[in-house]
């Protein structure tokens, strides 16, 4: 975008830009720095205003594994979020294709109905949904966590917006070549919506890895707890083991950061490829 060759004022501007980004990054980073430092404190220090622990308690991290089956909880969370993401991306892209590319009677009305369901607060649906789970025998099962989250209007809406931006000429050309609707979806639209798909995948994965209320209500067996529910182990009648909680939260963030760093490269490259093709 910036095609000018580097000159002294440009270099100064670039440095200023980096300075600004650093300051902003620090503002985002500060609470996490606090979190990591708090994870190195002793329980007695937890409520103190000082940021730095008197001496770092690396043992807190090992203690987390002694108090809760951390890896088990994390595996549960990762697998559940993974399935939800996969199902969500697949079914939403199909539906979005139908709303963005196919012309059928009543389409826009159905779409608005879809959208409308997001406007009702989910809280009032918790009880009926739970009753449905009881009816299907899905309480205390992984499936009961995956299914209700796997089909949402949000994903459909997001991908529809993305697909609307893809030039129609491309799929019309494919159709003239005699491709079926499924071919158009699978061979033309899907590859071109890659940034949209990756974006939706990030959002869905993040959201479900962290979801708390539904897993809390659904699960009875400790070995099937997800990570956010498992973190409740550090809250007790006698207050909170803040130092251990912070250590556990710090560790729970690691897979997300790895995933994000990996996916964002995918996602930038995807756009560039898409732009070249489009």
């Amino acid at each position: 975008m910036n095609a000018t060759p580097p000159s002294p004022p440009a270099a100064a501007r670039s440095l200023g830009l980096h300075g600004l980004m650093t300051v902003l990054s620090l503002a985002m980073l500060a609470p996490f720095a606090w979190m990591i430092l708090a994870s190195l404190k002793t329980l007695a220090e937890a409520g103190d205003p000082a940021w730095l622990p008197r001496s770092a308690q690396w043992d807190n991290y090992l203690e987390v594994f002694r108090v809760i089956p951390f890896l088990r909880f994390m595996a549960n969370s990762l697998v559940i979020a993974g399935w939800v993401t996969l199902l969500q991306v697949f079914t939403s892209s199909l539906a979005a294709f139908s709303f963005a590319r196919l012309d059928w009677p009543g389409r826009d009305r159905v779409f608005f109905l879809y959208l409308g369901t997001m406007m009702l607060p989910g809280l009032v649906m918790v009880i009926p949904n739970y009753q449905i789970m009881v009816r299907f025998g899905l309480v205390d099962s992984y499936l009961g966590l995956v299914l209700p989250s796997a089909f949402t209007a949000f994903g459909t809406f997001l991908l529809r917006q993305f697909m609307l931006g893809i030039p129609r000429a491309l799929d019309e050309a494919a159709e003239i070549d005699g491709a079926s609707k499924w071919r158009v979806y699978w061979d033309v639209i899907l590859p071109l919506s890659r940034p949209g798909l990756v974006t939706l995948a990030i959002f869905t994965f993040m959201g479900n890895y962290q979801s708390f209320f539904w897993p809390l209500v659904m699960m009875k067996n400790v070995d099937k707890y997800t990570l956010p529910v498992g973190l409740l182990f550090f809250d007790s009648e006698h207050g909170q083991a803040t130092h251990l909680l912070m250590a556990a939260v710090t560790m729970s963030v690691v897979p997300l950061i790895v995933l994000f760093v990996f996916l964002q490269r995918q996602f930038i490259r995807g756009i560039q490829l898409g732009a070249v093709k489009g």
Partner: peptide
């Protein structure tokens, strides 16, 4: 055209009906 549109919608709408629309109408 309607049938084709619905075919693409089906996987999403089946789950959607069960887990969103039923509680919605009930509430």
């Amino acid at each position: 055209r309607w049938l084709t549109g619905m075919a693409f919608l089906l996987p999403n709408i089946a789950g959607f009906l069960a887990f969103t629309l039923v509680p919605l109408v009930l509430s």
